[in-house]
Structure formats: C-alpha cells, structure tokens
Amino acid sequence: MPFTLATWNINSVRLREALVVKLLQEETPDILCLQECKSPVDKIPVEAFQALGYTHMVARGQKGYNGVAILSKLPMQDAGHHDFASLGHARHVVGRLENGVTIHNHYIPAGGDVPDREQNEKFGQKLDYLTELRDAFHATKPEKAILVGDLNIAPEEDDVWDHKKLLKVVSHTPIEVAHLKDTQDAGKWVDVTRRDIPDGKLYSWWSYRARDWDAADKGRRLDHIWATPDISNAVHGSRILRTARGWEKPSDHAPVFATFDL
C-alpha cells in the first residue's frame, strides 16, 4: 500500500485553511501531518478537508497554542498520545494505519531564545521533552513506525545557513543536537530526508523577520520525517516544497514529503 506523507507546521490551521486546501489539491499527499494548529479539535475546519477525500483525522488541540493533527485519505485509528515532560500541551498524537504502521506526529517545544535552562524555563522543557522521548524508545523499541513533525532542531551543519554563527542560537546548539541524536539513536530511527538528500544545504523554515526570505535564504531544517529500520528501505522521494513558503500569508515552515512503499 504505497502512500505519500507530508508534514507541515501550519502556524494556525484556521487562519491558513486555504493554504492547507491548496496543498491537498496541488500535491495530493495521502497523509498530511500538521503542527501548531492553534485550535481546539472541534474547531479544526475538517469539512473542507473531507471534501477533498481526507475523511480520517486524529488530533489533539488547545485554544491558541500548539496542537497536532493527522489528516488521511487512508483509514486510520486514533492510537493515543503522550504528554512528554508533563507540560499539559497538545504536542503529540499517534495514528495507526490498517497495515499496522503507526505515525507519531510531534511538535517539540521551540525552547525560547536563551539556550540555558537556568535562565530560560522553556529551554529546559525542550530538553526534558526529548529526554522523556528518548527514554520511551529505550523502554519500547519502535517497530513499523514513522515519526514526523516540527522537531525544532536543525541537527547537521548543512541544516542551517551558517553553522558557526548558529552554534549559540536555539535550534542548533550542541546540547540540543546531542539530545536529538540520543533520541534518534534510542529508537534506531532513520532520518529519511537526509538519507534521500544527503548533500548540500537543506531548509524547511525561514524566519518572518527577513524582508526577503528567499533572497536572504537564512533557513534551518527544523521539520523531519524519520522511519524505523524495518520500513526505512521502503521510503523514497523525499523533498521539501520550498515554494509554499512564498504563498500568500504563508506559514514560516515549508512542507516536507516522503513516499512509503508499504
């Protein structure tokens, strides 16, 4: 059952409903994982998505902040969620397809502006979230699973516009990168985007602060698709839809895609 999956931090699913519809119409992924929906689940505009064939949804939401959802053309069951770091935030949801594949959609905390947990509570929350996620993978090895989302960390040197300049900037600090690697290693996850596109600069996020984001091109790869080793060889066609960052009233993130031949 081959399917194409996309992940996208939409930065308000209600405000950008038209952009979600545009993506679903033009790119037709079978599954779309959204982060930062900023909406209670009952306020997500599902009618427009259902009209395009996305008749299945699992989601966790809250008013104005966070929120994750998985829209699917394929039958999908709600397989729960976990409140990592006990933040009380809607940051994780799991969907299970009929073939037994589970999809974990995460919105990891951004971590604030100061990379020091003593000075910045949000940075500590980010590290704690990753630590609990790592420990969960040590306790139960994931199988036949996909992990996607805005992980808010650009792990490799070519995942940021300037490695040296960003070493002290939240999202690329050594401690964050180490925490993400430990989490990835604990589940033996394969970063399929970088496996498919191993060379060169690769970004999925560009700040709103740039007057001309495209020309400045000061991006970071914060959005990820991982797969467990038992299915990672069935993944191909990874890409980032950079043009979506230039759509009218866009999210500051671009969608990331991969195709799974399962």
Rank of each mutant, 00 (worst) to 15 (best):
R91K: 14
V68N: 02
A69D: 00
G53E: 00
G53S: 00
R96L: 11
Y65H: 15
R96K: 14
T55D: 15
V68R: 03
A90F: 08
L52P: 13
E98V: 02
L97C: 08
Q50C: 12
G64L: 10
L97M: 09
D83N: 12
T55Y: 07
I70S: 02
R91Q: 10
L87Q: 14
Q77F: 06
S72Y: 05
G80K: 11
G67R: 00
H92Q: 10
D83K: 12
G67H: 01
H89D: 15
E98Y: 02
Y65T: 10
F84A: 08
L74G: 03
G80L: 09
G61S: 04
K63Y: 04
H56D: 12
G53F: 03
M57K: 07
G53N: 02
G53V: 00
S72M: 04
P75N: 05
H89R: 14
A69C: 12
P75L: 05
Q50T: 13
Q50A: 13
A51V: 09
G67I: 01
V94A: 04
F84D: 06
I70L: 07
I70E: 05
Q50E: 14
H82A: 13
D78R: 10
A51M: 07
L74K: 10
I70G: 01
L87K: 13
S86K: 14
G88Q: 02
D78G: 07
H92A: 09
R91P: 13
G88H: 06
N66I: 10
K73G: 11
S72A: 07
Q77D: 14
L87C: 08
N66C: 13
Y54N: 03
L87V: 07
A59C: 00
S86F: 05
G53A: 00
Y54W: 06
S72P: 04
M76V: 01
